[in-house]
Each structure stands twice: as C-alpha cells, then as structure tokens.
Design a protein around this nucleic acid. Structure first.
Lengths: 229, 229
DNA sequence: CGGTGAGTTGAAAGCAATCAAATGGCGTGG
DNA sequence: CCACGCCATTTGATTGCTTTCAACTCACCG
C-alpha cells in the first residue's frame, strides 16, 4: 500500500535496511509531503516536532543573528535526513531551496520506532557521523580560506554532489542556489561571490551561462584554486 | 578488576548505560592511556585505528591546509568521545592540549561491540547529534562574526564550559588554550586575538592576569559583545 | 516589449592580516 | 633568592582583502 515501493530514494535512504514488514509499519507513522520553494519547514529554536527524509529537491539548514546576517550551516539533498531526533528544539531553520518532496514523521513516533530498531539507529548514526565530518570540513573553509578558495571549493563540491552516485563530477550544470545563498554558505557577501565568479570566468577556469548555469572548463585549475589562491 | 569502578567520568561517559557485566566485557577491549601535552593521538587522513573516551584533560580536533594554516574544529573534555567509528580514516588530527588520560579502544573491536549493544549506540548517536549541533553553531561564528564577537563569545563559552555542570559560569579562571590556539579556533591571527583581548580589558569588561588568567568583570557587557560588536 | 529583481561592476572605506619590534612571564642556573 | 634567557604575548605601522555603498545591466516573466 505504501508509496515506499515506488520511492526514488528507497535504496539509499536509511529506510532501506528495514524489512518489507518493518518498512510498512514505519511508513504508517509518516506521510509524504510537498514543500514549495522558499517555504520554511522548521524554525530555529522552535519545538522539534517532526523529522523527515528528503525524497526530492534541496533544502538549506540555517541560523542567524539578530541583525539579519544569516549563515547556512548545511544543504540537504535526496535521501538525506532532516530534523533533530531525541531533542526538544530544532537548532536551525530548514527551508526549501527548490520544490521538494519529503517523507515526514512526527518526532515522538520516530524516536520510539528508532529506539526499537537498532539497525535503523545504526544507519542514522553513520549518517550523522558523516554529516559531522562534512560540517567540520566546512569549518576549515569558513575559518581559513580566502574568498577565491571558498568559491572554487563550492563550485567543485556542487559539481561532485550533483553527479549521480559514483559518477565523475559534472562539467556543466545549474547551481541549486542563488548568489545570495552561496554567499550565506561561504560566509561572504553577494558582491564578493560575483567578483570571484567573474574573475574565474576571465581566467578561463569556468564559464557562466545565464543566472544559474556553470561550465567547468579547466577542472585542474579549479582544483588548484580550491586549495590555495 | 577494571579501572571503571573508580573512573571519574563513569557516570557521564557513554559507558554508563552498560550493566556491570557488560561494562566489564567492554573494559577488557580497551585500556587506559596517558597522553602528554602536545602529543598527537591521531593524524588527519590516517587510518582510523582507535576510538577513545576522555577521562581527564582537554584535546583539540584540527585540520589544516598545505601552507600551515590550521583550523581547530573541536575541543573535547572529560567524558567526551574521540575518534571515527565505522569509518576508514580519521577526518582530523587529535592532539592533547594538556596532559590527558584516555580510555582507548581498537576501532574494530569497538565497532563490533557497539553493533551488538544498541543502548551504547543510542548513547553515541545522541552524543554525535549534540556534537553536530555544536559544530554548526560554531560555523555561524566563523562565517559571520567579527573579531570582537568571536573573542567575546569564546571567553563566555569557556567560562560556561569550565564551570561544574549546572553551576553559573566562572568569573575567574585560566584559559586552557594559548593565544595561538584561540586564534586557530576562531579563524583569526594571534595578533588580532591579543588586540581584542586588550581592547576588552581597556573597556573594563574583563581583566587579564598573567598569560592564561581571565577575570570577567562585566558579564552583561561581555554578553552584548558576543552578539554584536 | 517593458518591468522587476537578481546579478554585476565600480569606488571607497574598514577591518583584520602581515610584517616588525618591544615587552614581560616563567623556568633555569647561578 | 636573584639574574638571565627564551619564548609567548603584546604593541605598532602598514598593507590588502573583503565589505559597503551605489549605480548599472540583464535575464526572465508577464
């Protein structure tokens, strides 16, 4: 009965380790849900009511300070997990960057189900450890990298993340984020992001096509820029 | 027989949920170990051979780029967990900031024990989720805060972290880190850290006593500085 | 085909980094 | 106990990258 059988992330999301019977039970706890671009699913500091799996689309995790400065602390893609299990409040906001489909579960029910299915918790633990590694790598970028390094690294990473699992990074693609959002990820201003992109274009490393399109002309040079520039 | 019975972090470390029998079995897998100040226990990118619980002391987690720039991505204290279970390589170096005592386990043995003790894995999951939240909060600081805000936030956080669980933040204490290490945590240079500290002293917010001593004279003003300055 | 908002470019200012030199805390040996 | 030397820290001067403020362009939509 459940939509799981046709779910595109069934094989990669954490539910994949469940048996058919377990997955059916699990599926009954939650429901699919569409989230339009720009909609915020969860607010920083608010009670953590739900957790979810991303089925399609991309969402940002962000925190901000009084005066409007915002920092994006993570971006999640299909098969990624959203929300804060086993905790009272959500430590950051979650907002859709594109129209997205989620598989949403009430937090309480999820917590209980997870507690009684060690394999699922194990899967979640691995995912969380990976996410922690990624966050810490990002900290190096935020704390020690120049604007050039940040932007080059960002382009390279998106190219890798957008490629199908196991494939080589794409050489031509559309950015899933606006310039402002890129700036919020890298801890820069929108103008600085622009200037770096233009400079990289002038250097013949990339090409910019319209608002969102990027072509990587010289991957090696891009790689160099990501490390020191 | 095991040292566990006298272990100072027994009640807070993750081993606390194990039964006496289980803990004995668990203890047989590992051993206590002293790590002198400055010694590196684990190297960035190296095979992840061990995991450990911190019994006493403080250690830093750090990554760096070719040219010597370093970023500290985390600091761990007693009862915290170190290492990368379920993964091939360690994503960052681990170095003792002070003489430390650890309870060390071979990774393989730990992984297997954890897999067969869901309660332990659950505890580890919660710990990892907390750590991820902390890392993301740090990202906001690194990406969007001014030098003043970074240093003020750092002082405030150390005061809180050094106080006994549940107590009010300390008003006079010794920093567990050198100026250079503080700089590496905040993504600043040592000179900038110095200047900010001196400025805060001149402003009457804190006092500096010798190399490591700090007294908080005006907690409210410090709090303000941590948020916007 | 014109409007609108994202994106780009330019000029100037500001903040932290860099380079350089002075100070002082602390351990050591006399 | 005091003098000495080393190294962390502090302070100063200058540079330069990123931000800020402002104007302009252009892609995309109706």
């Amino acid at each position: 009965m459940s939509a799981c059988n046709s779910c595109v992330v069934r094989t990669q999301a954490m539910c994949s380790i469940l048996s058919d019977r377990e997955r059916e039970e699990f599926a009954r706890l939650g429901r699919q849900m569409a989230v339009p671009t720009g909609q915020t699913l969860m607010w920083e500091g608010a009670d953590s009511m739900v957790v979810a799996n991303v089925v399609s689309g991309a969402l940002k995790l962000s925190t901000s300070v009084q005066d409007g400065r915002e920092q994006i602390v993570g971006v999640v893609y299909p098969s990624d997990f959203i929300g804060r299990p086993f905790g009272k409040t959500s430590p950051h906001s979650v907002t859709a960057l594109s129209d997205a489909r989620l598989c949403v579960f009430p937090r309480g029910a999820f917590d209980m189900f997870a507690r009684s299915h060690p394999d699922l918790e194990h899967r979640l633990l691995r995912r969380t450890l990976d996410e922690l590694d990624r966050a810490r790598g990002w900290m190096l970028l935020l704390g020690r990298a120049s604007a050039r390094e940040k932007v080059a690294t960002f382009i390279r990473d998106v190219a890798g993340r957008l490629a199908a699992e196991g494939d080589a990074p794409l050489t031509r693609f559309d950015l899933p984020l606006s310039r402002q959002q890129i700036a919020d990820i890298l801890g820069l201003t929108i103008e600085t992001v622009c200037r770096q992109l233009t400079a990289m274009k002038r250097a013949g490393v990339i090409d910019l096509i319209g608002r969102r399109g990027v072509a990587i002309l010289n991957p090696d040079q891009l790689e160099d820029m990501a490390h020191a520039a």
